[in-house]
Amino acid sequence: TTLTVNTQTYTFTSEEEAREFARRYGAKTIRKTNGTWEVHG
């Protein structure tokens, strides 16, 4: 199964959650914005 996250942004309140998600789905960018963490595919 392949998950494609081209134009979607996922927002997390903790860096740990964001990094775990990025690691699991191979997202390329993690960015902190206004106190939340954004993961970009």
Rank of each mutant, 00 (worst) to 15 (best):
T1Y: 06
T1K: 08
T1P: 14
T1S: 12
T2N: 13
T2C: 15
T2Y: 05
T2I: 11
T2R: 10
T2K: 11
T2E: 13
T2S: 14
T2P: 12
L3S: 14
T4L: 11
T4I: 13
T4V: 13
T4Q: 12
T4H: 13
T4D: 14
T4F: 06
T4K: 10
V5H: 14
V5S: 13
V5R: 05
V5C: 15
V5Y: 08
N6M: 13
N6W: 10
N6I: 13
N6P: 13
T7M: 11
T7G: 07
Q8E: 09
T9F: 12
T9K: 09
T9V: 15
T9R: 10
Y10K: 06
Y10G: 02
T11C: 15
T11N: 05
T11G: 03
T11W: 09
T11E: 05
T11H: 07
T11P: 02
F12A: 00
F12W: 01
F12P: 00
F12K: 00
F12V: 00
F12L: 00
T13K: 09
T13G: 08
T13R: 07
S14N: 11
S14G: 02
S14M: 03
S14F: 03
E15Y: 14
E15M: 05
E15G: 02
E15S: 02
E16A: 12
E16D: 09
E16W: 11
E17M: 06
E17W: 02
E17R: 04
A18I: 00
A18H: 00
A18C: 02
R19F: 08
R19G: 03
R19I: 11
R19Y: 10
R19K: 10
R19W: 10
E20W: 06
E20N: 07
E20R: 08
E20K: 07
E20I: 06
F21D: 00
F21Q: 01
F21K: 01
A22F: 04
A22P: 00
A22N: 01
R23K: 11
R23G: 05
R23F: 06
R23P: 00
R23D: 07
R24H: 06
R24P: 01
R24E: 05
Y25F: 11
Y25M: 13
Y25Q: 05
Y25K: 05
G26W: 03
G26P: 02
G26H: 08
A27R: 05
A27M: 15
A27G: 15
K28S: 12
K28V: 15
K28W: 07
K28E: 11
K28L: 12
T29E: 10
I30P: 02
I30D: 02
R31S: 07
R31L: 11
R31K: 11
R31T: 11
R31W: 07
K32E: 09
K32C: 15
T33A: 14
N34T: 03
N34M: 04
N34H: 03
G35K: 03
G35H: 04
G35T: 04
G35P: 01
G35V: 02
G35A: 03
T36Y: 13
T36D: 05
T36G: 14
W37Q: 00
W37E: 00
W37M: 01
W37L: 01
W37I: 01
V39R: 00
V39Y: 01
V39K: 01
V39A: 02
V39M: 01
H40Y: 14
H40V: 15
H40P: 05
G41A: 13
G41P: 12
G41V: 15
